[in-house]
Simulated assay, not measured.
Amino acid sequence: MSSHEQIPEAVSLIGVGRVHGKGTAAVTALSDVTVGISRGSFTAVMGPSGSGKSTFLQCAAGLDRPTSGTVRLGETDLSGLNETGLTELRRERVGFVFQAFNLMPSLTVLENITLPLRLAGRKADREWLAEIVRRVGLTGRTEHRPAELSGGQQQRVAIARALVTRPEVVFADEPTGALDTVTAKEVLVLLRDTVDTMGQTVVMVTHDPVAASYADEVLFLADGRITDRLAGASAEQIADRMTHLGAWAA
């Protein structure tokens, strides 16, 4: 008998559908999506505009409720939670990184990073906080305001904020979309590092094949369905697959 226990997936979607609107105005954003994302993995989600990428992320993260199917975070079925339960889950078990950084301009770097803890009524673990600040390269910048930082530094603050609660999953929505190529690479290396050295689980929506090439696996969405998965692919292979996706999805 194997002594290896089955580790529950970080996130699993089972037969998930999401329809926006009703009747003749109904638009299907996701259709019967079933996928599991392993703990300690970096997954990129790609697809043409309107393919359902953002809806996938919102349903997986508990920001939006699917019309059908089941979403689980670890062993928690999200459909069994009321709005208060979902808010607590998002605050304590999930981290978010967005294209627009979403920092509070009046707060310092340190205050922005610890904001999720304050909202949850929890004190920061000083050692963990120092470790996060060091890892994201913000040592010596913690008393600055966002306006005093570059775009790349602001995104590092956002990543630190996402990590500070020790979330089960970090969801990143186009995290390099507002950054230049060099800065984008720094942010992607940082996300990759959180997976490799901290065992973090990262799910990233991106339109950029170079960004996606940092992931362990790429999920391709077209017309609300997962049409392909590529593991360990180069930017060129991913771009080539996206080209065909566009052709067949039309």
Rank of each mutant, 00 (worst) to 15 (best):
Q237D: 15
V11F: 07
T76P: 01
E127A: 11
F101C: 14
H144A: 15
E143L: 15
A178C: 12
G50C: 06
V97A: 15
V195T: 08
D196W: 08
F101A: 06
Q154T: 10
V202G: 00
Q200E: 07
A235I: 09
V218T: 10
Q155K: 02
E168W: 10
C59M: 01
S3K: 03
E75T: 12
S51K: 07
V33M: 02
G15M: 09
P8A: 11
P66T: 00
L103A: 06
Q237S: 14
R135F: 06
V35A: 08
V205D: 01
I7K: 05
E92S: 13
K185D: 07
R90G: 08
T227V: 15
G121K: 11
Q153S: 03
I14D: 14
G50M: 13
Q154M: 08
T176Y: 13
T183F: 10
V94R: 04
H244S: 12
W128E: 05
I226G: 14
L190R: 10
P48N: 04
A211K: 15
V189D: 11
A130T: 13
K53I: 04
S68K: 11
A10Q: 06
R122Y: 00
E174F: 00
D196T: 10
S150E: 08
G23T: 02
M242Y: 03
R39C: 09
W248E: 07
V136Q: 08
S54A: 08
I14C: 11
A231S: 12
V133T: 15
E111D: 13
E168K: 12
A172W: 08
E88H: 09
T201L: 09
I37M: 14
G23C: 09
Q58N: 14
L115T: 11
T76E: 05
L107I: 01
V71M: 03
R145D: 02
I113E: 13
G74M: 04
S68H: 05
R225S: 10
T165P: 09
N102W: 00
V195F: 09
A222I: 03
E111N: 09
S3Q: 12
Q200Y: 06
Q155D: 07
V157H: 00
T76Q: 15
M104F: 15
L163I: 13
W248S: 08
L117W: 06
N102H: 07
F96R: 11
G80E: 15
Q6D: 09
S54I: 07
M46R: 07
G21A: 06
G224Y: 01
F56S: 11
T243L: 12
S41N: 02
V157P: 00
D216Y: 01
L219T: 04
P146W: 09
G232T: 01
T181Y: 09
S31W: 02
R156I: 05
R18P: 00
L107H: 05
A160Y: 05
G232I: 01
T139F: 02
P175A: 13
H144M: 07
R90P: 02
P66G: 05
L245W: 03
P146T: 15
V45Q: 10
A147L: 07
A172I: 06
D240K: 10
A147P: 04
F96W: 11
S51E: 14
L81D: 00
D196V: 10
V218N: 05
V136W: 12
T181L: 03
S12D: 13
P48M: 10
G62D: 03
S54W: 03
A249Y: 02
A61C: 13
G15V: 13
A211M: 13
L188I: 02
